[in-house]
Design a protein around this nucleic acid. Structure first.
Lengths: 156, 156
DNA sequence: GGTGAAAGTTTTTCTCT
DNA sequence: AGAGAAAAACTTTCACC
């Protein structure tokens, strides 16, 4: 497990908020010079604390107008059945996130589609008829009020 | 609204997957030289198609063991009440995402906490007693099966 | 573990097509 | 709009503290 000090946490907070900040700028913000700062970042990448970097895109501008959350219950909760469902979700590009939950609902999915029509098409031809699916309850996103990456790290 | 050609879409797909790729590498991948590639990326940033870049962190390694989805219903769905609730969610660092939904559930929240205890604390002292909250149903994430950034852009 | 300078890339600008 | 060359900035390594 990684031993993270206060500086590491601040590096991570900065990079989570601004992933393409230059190393010099990053070093200044946390009070280091460039070389040790870069060494720390590389180490955090190696250890897997930093799993990657991603551009955040405007879905609507790219023609993806629909975000839906789907609450899925399966007929069988045997580990094999769960794995099979997860495999299936991995193959569907509209499914951006799939989380296994406790309680009555087995999975929650975040689904992104171009429009209502393509979402309905996806729902009825891909998701609902998937093996072992008992019920699917979907809710359309009216608006996204808040969307922050990752973890709090506020008092980092 | 932005006029995106095939090259722009490929740039975006690459940057969504690998946000810290160098401009030279990006240019090679989409079949351009560096200067026009950089100009396109800058334009996409200006237009707001690219909203930012973020490091993806390992929550568990940082001591955040709990991810919870909360389904929240409000007493009043008047626009003022909705706005007030959204404001409130913005002030809570544990709440990473807040989406307003159609149907019986008014909001879905993604909440990240260090452990069960601090989550319970958050739930009973911050979320449930918030103004106008009628009901909160929470589900713990057992495991995250899939987590991709943003939008499909597969056939980009 | 941090500093400072030097070497190697990359970003960025400019000019031309 | 895109290409090639040049300038500026950044990343990365090395020797030293």
């Amino acid at each position: 497990m990684p031993n993270l000090d206060q500086i590491d946490r601040r590096l991570l907070a900065e990079l989570q908020a601004e992933g393409r900040i230059t190393n010099v700028e990053l070093a200044q913000r946390v009070g280091l010079t460039a070389p040790p700062c870069l060494r720390r970042v590389r180490a955090l990448e190696e250890e897997g604390v930093i799993k990657g970097y991603h551009a955040e895109l405007d879905a609507l501008m790219l023609g993806y107008a629909i975000t839906v959350f789907a609450l899925v219950s399966l007929k069988s909760q045997a580990e094999d059945s769960l794995r099979q469902f997860e495999e299936h979700m991995r193959d569907l590009p509209e499914v951006r996130e799939c989380h296994m939950l406790n309680g009555e609902i087995d999975f929650i999915l975040k689904i992104v589609s171009k429009d209502l029509q393509s979402f309905q098409e996806f729902l009825t031809s891909k998701l609902t008829p998937a093996p072992n699916v008992a019920s699917v309850k979907t809710s359309l996103t009216i608006r996204t009020s808040k969307k922050l990456p990752g973890v709090p790290l506020e008092g980092a």
